[in-house]
Write a protein that binds this DNA or RNA. Structure first.
Lengths: 229, 229
DNA sequence: CAAGCTTAAATTGCATACAATCTTGACGTC
DNA sequence: GACGTCAAGATTGTATGCAATTTAAGCTTG
């Protein structure tokens, strides 16, 4: 699926990872020059990577004004999560029909890695939480479904980066574990229920925290009206 | 959503339309030079457009070997249609909940345009058939869902271009009309049934016609073994 | 001192040049 | 005549240069 020359691939992948791990926060400007310099290539390749990221909805490019990490609006957030629930329900239903021993192992192994990253307070934990859902999609064997889930999970991560608490892991690991159990037991109803609850919980993590609900300059500044703190 | 400079947008849009209207068939090589020359721009912009089309799954780029209209495999075809049914079912269910008079009008108006294009044997009819489904998605008000449906419909069109009869309109217009009626009546069950049948019919149009099921050179050549014809 | 204007710096838009790689077709060998 | 080799041509990979646009700063003015 991926292509273009390998070099721009590397830049694309690095930027993507940095965004998903919240090292590059929404709104951060991404000048072609700096990116090129960072990776030791020219603007040409930097731009190519940015164009691809724009296609993924992770970056916004405004003509003549450069690229920046996308800043999903609050309305988009609800939209994204609604569709994500739809897609992941499809994943669960497909998985419940046939779940191999290897698949269960792969999932358990992934969760172990998540736990390790969380204990180490590694930024990887944020990305791994999302990748758990992508792994689920992969196990359906459907390339298309995997691609779509990957997209929507990426957008979700971006939304959490914008609206969620800093460094909050995206997902509760216990919920991942519960989901694996339900899938192993081929308990379709329970699996769907857990997934729905799980995604609502993730969404709430954005909702309940209005750290940046709107970049309402007035509201922000009003907190700085009193002399000091 | 779209960005980059307007000029590469135009190239992207033109190429996309040409592919969806089957003017550019799967497998057709797309050299940067020719494209640039055609549109009166340099390879730079041609390449940018190709990279974006690759992101849409409409074009395949192999490093150092150039771009070509993507050739979905038969397996991909089934995969695509399965996911498409999932997404369009979601569209129907959302639409059944609330269907405005204006929405019905928009759909009827679109179908009229489809009929006109079919009567005129215009290649536009192929694209319009797909756009009916995108219009449905738009009417849900969900940008995300619309984007995903747009993607999957595009892929479907490509598959029909590869496996279907030449110039066959993608969709039966009567089915579109029936669907509108069911939606207007808020008859969820019937709407879902029609949509499922409709998509199966579309898929069958690819299945039953093995004009190019596999580019099996041996099989093709075997037909040319006897002296002449 | 706010608001507008002017200009310099920064950044992107795009074409082009050169290197690297792939494709081809000619040529010679078996 | 099939097959392998090799050079010429075609095509892509990438950096860079110049023009155009945006942004920021400084300056003037009411």
């Amino acid at each position: 699926m991926a292509t273009t020359t390998t070099r721009s691939d590397a830049i694309y992948a690095s930027l993507r990872r940095a965004i998903l791990e919240q090292a590059l926060k929404p709104g951060t400007k991404l000048p072609e020059d700096s990116i090129g310099e960072t990776f030791g290539v020219s603007r040409t390749l930097a731009k190519a990577a940015l164009v691809r990221l724009e296609g993924d909805g992770l970056v916004e490019i405004r003509p003549n004004r450069g690229a920046a990490v996308a800043m999903p609006s609050f309305a988009e957030a609800e939209d994204v999560f609604a569709l994500r629930r739809c897609l992941e329900r499809e994943v669960i239903e497909r998985l419940c029909r046939r779940m191999s021993k290897d698949a269960i192992d792969a999932l358990r192994s992934h969760v172990r890695e998540e736990e390790r990253a969380v204990r180490a307070s590694s930024p990887r934990s944020i990305r791994l939480a999302g990748e758990f859902h992508i792994l689920l999609a992969e196990l359906t064997g459907s390339t298309e479904l995997t691609g779509f889930v990957s997209r929507i999970v990426s957008r979700s991560s971006l939304i959490l980066a914008r609206f969620g608490r800093p460094h909050s892991a995206e997902c509760g690991i216990e919920e991942h574990i519960g989901l694996i159990e339900a899938l192993a037991a081929q308990d379709r109803a329970r699996a769907v229920r857990i997934m729905d609850a799980h995604l609502h919980a993730v969404e709430d993590r954005a909702n309940t925290d209005d750290s940046g609900r709107e970049p309402d300059v007035g509201a922000i500044l009003s907190r700085y009206l009193s002399p000091t703190d």
